[in-house]
Simulated assay, not measured.
Amino acid sequence: MSNLESIVQQRKAVRVYDPNFTIPKEEIANLLSLASRAPSANNLQPWRVIVIQNKELQKELRAIGNNQAQIEESSAVIAILGDIEAHKNVERIFNQNVEEGYVSQEIANLSIERTLSYYPTMPLETRKQSSAYDAGAFAMQFMLLAKERGYDTVTMGGFDKVKFAKRFELPENVFPITLIALGKALAPAFGTSRLPIESFTTFYE
């Protein structure tokens, strides 16, 4: 079994954390940097992140998050957000691609032009769904990387997103998607079953 396979099987939703365990800010930053290698439509990287390590703020957030203990007891809460105006960063992204030698300026200019002509015409809900989809890939990559380093995680969609957006003064183009508790398990996670692939897969051979 490969290391990745092992990590995928070991990663579980942990809900009981050691409140005295601390993960350095630099470690979390490194995990986020690696997670940002996740794929995204047109490489627009529409995820936005808030890292909450302040214990008083975690306690406040717990009230917004349906009183889930892991919000307060984990080492940090990683809020994953989506940006429906991520296309506005396209020039910065593709010019950086040119600087780092990945594409020519001609290709970058063409990509920029296409993006700026197409994305603003897309329905708001379509852009929101696309951002959420890409942010989900980022979140999953983050959790697997965290597990590889011996940390535990759990995602939480059950929180008051309106109150969260107000508390953290999110701009109108940014919306909350999920919270990830990050830390060290104090109790093992429950095992969970998975349906056989025959129940969700169709092969055309």
Rank of each mutant, 00 (worst) to 15 (best):
Q141W: 01
P171H: 02
L186K: 15
P176G: 03
R149C: 01
N89A: 09
E60V: 00
G101L: 10
S33P: 02
E125Y: 02
I180F: 03
E100A: 11
P196T: 12
L116S: 04
E27W: 00
L44S: 01
G183V: 08
F164W: 00
A69Y: 12
P120T: 03
L182N: 01
A35C: 08
L57G: 04
L195R: 14
A137D: 05
E172G: 11
G191S: 11
Y204G: 09
E205Y: 14
R167Y: 04
R11K: 11
L182S: 03
E113S: 14
L124Y: 01
S130I: 10
T126Y: 07
I64S: 07
I50C: 02
M1F: 10
A185E: 13
F200M: 12
R15M: 08
E113T: 13
Q9L: 13
L179C: 05
I71A: 02
E72S: 11
A41I: 04
P24E: 08
S104N: 04
T22D: 15
A76G: 04
Y118M: 12
P19R: 09
M143V: 00
A165W: 06
V90T: 14
P46L: 02
L124V: 02
K166E: 15
G158C: 03
E85Y: 05
K161N: 00
L144S: 03
G158F: 07
M140L: 12
V8M: 15
I71V: 14
E72V: 00
F94V: 03
S117I: 09
T153A: 05
V98L: 11
E169Y: 04
N89I: 02
S193E: 15
D18P: 09
Q68L: 09
K163Y: 06
N43A: 10
T192R: 12
L32E: 06
I71Q: 08
R149F: 02
S6K: 15
L179T: 00
F203D: 02
D152R: 07
S199R: 11
A38E: 05
I52D: 03
A79E: 03
